[in-house]
Design a binder for these strands. Structure first.
Lengths: 350, 350
DNA sequence: GTTAGCACTCCAACATGCTGAGTGCTAACA
DNA sequence: TGTTAGCACTCAGCATGTTGGAGTGCTAAC
């Protein structure tokens, strides 16, 4: 039995119908469609074949058919008409994103909001990973008699800082010296490289004169480097799920929200996805997300650093529309962060 | 008709029963309680009086009584036994909070998580407002030929920075000069004070020699100061609301989540509350939160800066327990940020 | 290969009746 | 005069039964 054109057409009709209505699709409903000129009985025969082939399922005897994960995958890969985003939507996105281009963080957070508004789904966005960013310089600044601030500046302008409680008294000269030596040693190296090197050794040879201080500094320096690698996750549109009939069941809504609000795990899922426009459906996802579809795409900062955003929702999702919104937003972001490249601003909070 | 002791006792029983079960409380149920030695009929009479006085309501003829906002208020103010937190809970909190004292931000976020776990409610925490923090110094750092990073350091060690796209070429000397002049002018002044001053005037007189640069710097400086005032909001336990029968209704759950995930508005509500341990119930809250109770308390950083955390949930809330958890956590935080005072660390992200 | 027809299945919606929990009122009691 | 027993009444919730519609699968005819 092979997937001939007629079967494909019927399958496509079922999937797109189900995406619209979330109701199992029956043979009579399909036969009424202008693009399908077959009697219900014929359609039933084809449906029966499609079910045997694993593309459809059957909630109960007298219900219509529901697409399987396999059907969604086929739909996304071959059957879906890739909707071009209407001009008005493009304008709305461009306008809303443009309103606030000052800071990467804020812009990314804002992009997530726009995305959830446009798709009526739960959206998310993560900031770029800095592991390959190169150190520009390192600075120690006095705060009070026992505290200094360590500041690491990357070539892309990203600044990370931590306060360090010094175990021994320090002088301004000490700080200047450490700043110079460390900048000299580490400038141009990638954060990830530094984290695999034995930094303590470098310190030992260079900073014998202030051994009392180096002890407090090394662990803080490593921690600050690690902080530089943190990726921020922004999410928006949680309450959109209540519009979807699949989450009328409180237990399901709860499960979904629990999975999705577990920031650490969810960030992990996002960071570890493949690059580019990625759609994963049902079983293709991790255990907790088996009932969901996930769409992500990447944006670039300065043409190099890569961040990511997307949506999560039921498998019954308007893949075409959503995909084009996501693509448009990521393109837009990449452009924003290119033109204003060095404008990327950094904040520091507690 | 006055609130004699018997009425109070009955009211108290009704409120605490309703808090436990979320079911309207009937006269027979009450008469079975060991501490109430009255027949159902007598209790009915008293209930009828209490209803007339506005302390109780009646979902329908043949249902038990439900406390009104007025009853909750009385309960919280007079009737509630303030539960002492069991030693084991104290230990759990102390342990979980202690595990991570490195950074204010992280600790505060973590405190919110602990709070929602302990109370099974939606919790939140905001970082301190820095408007009265004093500037320690100001630094301009080169990034690339047209970009510099502006960094403002407060006396409490908080660092805020932004990247500035320069409208004219600059030299390292320019930056050093600006750093010195601005630090000299602004050191020791509070952020809020600076924001009300005419900063541009200061620049004009001092920086004539680099007028081409000052134009890019003034607006960025003001924006960075404003950034220093941003308060971060952390929330946790969203999915806890699904355990509560009052949110079995999808529409209610949706409303609640929408209100609570509106970060800007909710932050505003929190920032503008009175200081100290505050409980607001039902009508005492803003329109959107009329069905909720809100409990907040403050923590101190260095004995000065004030942050805030708390929970939000249905009016039917275990006020005693929740209050003592919140108090214990805020006390604990204040202590953490006191002992480790200068250890407060700052991060910088995009 | 396609289709009409038919028997069959199952869900959803509605009606019905019953039970239990609760009330308010009245009259009797201490 | 305050308390209580008793009674009629109300209402939500549950179980049960009924019906109609939407759907299927199969068979036989075109």
């Amino acid at each position: 039995m092979d997937l001939n054109e007629r079967k494909l057409k019927i399958l496509q009709a079922i999937v797109s119908d189900f995406i619209k209505t979330s109701e199992p699709v029956g043979s009579r409903t399909l036969s009424k469609r202008p693009d399908i000129d077959l009697s219900p009985a014929t359609i039933r025969n084809e449906m029966s074949d499609l079910e045997e082939m694993g593309y459809l399922t059957h909630p109960h005897t007298s219900a219509g058919r529901v697409p399987s994960d396999k059907a969604y995958r086929l739909y996304v890969d071959q059957l879906m008409k890739s909707a071009d985003l209407p001009e008005e939507n493009k304008q709305e996105i461009a306008q809303r994103l443009g309103a606030n281009t000052a800071e990467l963080d804020q812009t990314v957070e804002h992009a997530a909001k726009v995305l959830s508004d446009m798709t009526n789904l739960v959206s998310f966005a993560i900031t770029p990973n800095r592991s390959e960013s190169k150190i520009n310089y390192i600075n120690f600044l006095p705060v009070d008699s026992s505290t200094v601030v360590l500041m690491i500046v990357c070539e892309d302008g990203k600044v990370t800082n931590s306060a360090i409680k010094m175990s021994a008294p320090y002088t301004e000269e000490n700080l200047t010296f450490m700043s110079k030596v460390m900048t000299h040693n580490f400038k141009g190296k990638a954060v990830s490289t530094l984290l695999t090197e034995n930094i303590a050794a470098t310190f030992e040879s260079d900073m014998q004169s202030l051994s009392g201080l180096a002890g407090s500094v090394v662990p803080s320096f490593i921690k600050t480097l690690e902080k530089m690698l943190n990726v921020d996750l922004y999410m928006d549109g949680y309450s959109n799920i209540f519009r979807l009939p699949e989450y009328n069941d409180i237990a399901k809504a709860k499960n979904f929200l629990e999975t999705v609000t577990n920031k650490d795990e969810f960030t992990n899922v996002l960071v570890n996805r493949e690059q580019g426009l990625m759609i994963t459906i049902g079983d293709e996802n991790a255990e907790d997300l088996k009932d969901c579809a996930l769409i992500t795409a990447d944006y670039k900062v300065n043409g190099k650093l890569v961040g990511r955003l997307g949506v999560i929702g039921p498998k019954r999702m308007k893949y075409g529309e959503v995909t084009s919104v996501i693509k448009y937003i990521t393109d837009n972001l990449s452009k924003t962060f290119e033109i204003e490249a060095p404008r990327e601003e950094e904040d520091s909070d507690e």
